[in-house]
Amino acid sequence: MLLKVKNLNAGYGFLNVLWDVSLNIGKGEFVALIGPNGAGKSTVMKSISGLLPPKSGTITFDGQVINNQDCAVNCRSGLSYISEELNLFTGMTILENLEMGAQMLEDKNKARENLDFVFELFPRLEERISQYAGTLSGGERKMLAIARGLMSNPTMVLVDEPSLGLAPQVTDEVFNALRLLNRQGLTILLVEQNVTKTLKFSSRAYILEKGKVVLEGPSSELITNDHVRKIYLGT
C-alpha cells in the first residue's frame, strides 16, 4: 500500500470530527472519499497532507509514518494536496504560480518537463500564461490548482472538491484530466460531491458519514448499493 491510514482520530480543538477512520490506497489507484457535507472528508485530507495533526491513529505514506510531518515535507516526499480553497497566488501570473509549485524540485530540467506536461493537459493555461490568477474563471482556477500540484512531480495527489461551482462541461474536462493522470500512473485520492461521476471514474470508494467509514468497496459495486443509491444518487 502506498498510503495507509489506521484508526485516525482528528478534529479541531476539543471538537473531534473523525472517529477511527482507516483507509488503504495502493500505488496507481484512483480512490474516492464520498459523504455528505460535514462528514469530515476535508478533515481526512488535511490530516493526511500534514495541515492538521491527528489526535491519534497512524498515517503511513510510502512506508514512512508521517503523522507529525509538515505539509511541505510531505510534498517533498511525493504527496501533493490540492485543496478546495485552491490557495492560488492571485497577484501572480499562471506561469509564476506553476513555477512556485516546482520550487522544491532540484532538477530544473524536470521542472521544464512538468511545465510542458501540464500545458499539454490544460492547453487553456498555456494560452493565458501571462494572465494573473486572480482574473481567471472558476474552471481555469481549478485547472491551475491541479497543474500547480503536479509541478512538484508527486507520487500521489489528494484532490478536494475539484468540480465545486463548475459548469458541467468544465467538470468533464477536470475529471477527464484526472483519469488521464491516473492512467499514467499517478495515485489519486478524490473528495467530491458529484457522486455519480465520481463512482464512474474511480476504481474504489469509501463512504464517510458523521466522521466514520460506513461502507467501502469497488465503485462499480457501490453505485448499485441500496444505501448509496437512496442517500447519494436519489434513486
Rank of each mutant, 00 (worst) to 15 (best):
147 A>S: 14
171 T>G: 08
28 G>T: 07
164 L>P: 01
204 R>S: 13
26 G>K: 15
109 N>G: 06
134 G>F: 10
160 D>F: 08
55 K>H: 11
133 A>V: 04
109 N>P: 01
49 S>F: 03
157 V>K: 00
69 Q>P: 00
3 L>F: 05
100 M>W: 04
154 P>Q: 03
218 P>C: 12
215 L>E: 04
171 T>Y: 03
86 L>M: 13
93 T>W: 05
19 W>M: 09
132 Y>L: 15
62 D>W: 05
138 G>T: 11
102 A>L: 07
79 L>A: 06
44 V>S: 01
142 K>G: 00
160 D>A: 10
5 V>F: 02
37 N>S: 10
27 K>A: 13
122 F>G: 00
13 G>E: 08
60 T>F: 00
135 T>Y: 13
52 L>Y: 05
206 Y>D: 02
233 L>W: 07
221 E>R: 13
208 L>E: 02
225 N>D: 15
98 L>R: 01
215 L>T: 09
174 V>W: 05
19 W>D: 12
134 G>T: 10
219 S>W: 04
211 G>Y: 00
213 V>Q: 06
45 M>L: 14
184 Q>I: 07
58 T>M: 12
98 L>P: 00
190 L>F: 06
105 L>C: 02
35 G>W: 00
200 K>R: 15
2 L>S: 09
79 L>D: 01
21 V>N: 03
123 P>K: 10
153 N>W: 07
8 L>Y: 01
149 G>F: 00
158 L>E: 03
226 D>V: 13
158 L>C: 07
8 L>C: 06
136 L>T: 04
128 R>V: 03
105 L>G: 01
